[in-house]
Simulated assay, not measured.
Amino acid sequence: MGDRFSIEALLPEDYLDHQLRSDVRAGLTGRPKSVQPKWFYDAAGSRLFERITRLPEYYPTRAEREILTARSGEIAAATGAASLIELGSGSSEKTRILLEALEPDVYIPVDVSRTALEDAAAGLVRAHPDLTVHAVVGDFQHELKLPRSPGPRLLAFLGGTIGNLTPGRRERFLAGLPGLLEPGDSLLVGTDLVKDERTLVAAYDDAQGVTAAFNKNMLRVLNRRLGADFDPERFSHVARWDARREWIEMRLRSDGAQSVRIASLDLEVRFDDGEDLLTETSTKFRREGVAAELERAGFALRRWWTDEAGRFAVSLAELS
């Protein structure tokens, strides 16, 4: 890839192992017991999630792609972005739609996985001969620094991932974004919207059981990486809508009383019969709420687009 690709590692090599141990100890000794959803994604978990995105019940990926395909030209015209920054870029799949419309000079993908960044960059550099890719191995929930790049800049946070942050974490995350940008730069955010309970629950509890397998795979991740002895078959997948908080919860419910040993943490965790392990919350949004959260962080909402069915939204905001 030559001088058109560079990669900067902001995280030490043992960062993910340290974070996993810290998160799991805090989560399994808390009330309710919980594990953060970022630990779904080992190789098997990533493959299962790809299957989820193709399920008839799971609309967010298709809906966001529909919006980006229809509105990428407007995004390019509104921002005039010379640099595209993407947080949690992964395979940079949907970003290709933006790159075609924006034709930026620089693309800055940020992800915790160096392998994912390198794999995605190889294809992008081939497809866009004039594009320079400055990849960053970093965690958007922690201190983040970006390489210098030409303005104006567009920072993208897609996939509805912002909904996986609890309100306090989301507020801190958004408050930190202006430090990465300059006045006049833009923020593009994908958010799943509040809708009927049946549609929402089905998206997280599909008829084929793929989401259940994805949820239980987290226990296999903990077994492999932390020497735990979870039996995934002794937990049931649960998806429920919390109407007060307007979020979906995914849980693993203990089938019977049991104890689990986490060898590398020297920790034994007791589950009562029917006790839940919270593995994900996914907030669903309304336009007025998105606008208010962005405003508190220093952004002004400029555009709001939804898919034809009104299930998902992409917001374009400008840093004041």
Rank of each mutant, 00 (worst) to 15 (best):
A70L: 09
E295R: 14
I67R: 08
T79S: 01
P129M: 11
E66C: 04
P150R: 03
V24M: 09
E100P: 00
S320A: 14
D23T: 00
G45A: 04
S89E: 10
A156R: 01
G45F: 05
Q19L: 01
R224E: 10
L181G: 09
L154I: 06
L181V: 13
I7Y: 04
T79V: 03
V112M: 06
D196I: 12
P109Q: 08
L265N: 02
S113A: 11
D14A: 12
V35D: 07
V106I: 15
E100F: 06
A43E: 15
D242G: 12
V133I: 13
D42I: 02
A120M: 10
E293M: 06
D205W: 01
M218D: 04
V269Q: 06
L181Q: 12
T306R: 05
N164H: 11
G310F: 04
D196N: 15
L188C: 03
V112R: 00
L87W: 08
D205N: 13
P32L: 08
L180W: 04
L301N: 06
L102K: 11
T211H: 04
T199G: 12
E143T: 08
W39T: 00
P152F: 09
E280G: 06
F173D: 13
R4I: 12
L200S: 04
L226C: 00
L200M: 09
G163Q: 07
V238W: 08
L252K: 08
R47T: 11
L131T: 09
A291Y: 11
S22F: 10
S315A: 15
R287P: 02
A121M: 01
V112F: 08
F271G: 05
L55T: 11
D307A: 10
T79F: 12
V137P: 02
R126E: 15
D205L: 05
R225G: 11
G179D: 13
A202F: 01
L102C: 13
A81F: 00
L28F: 00
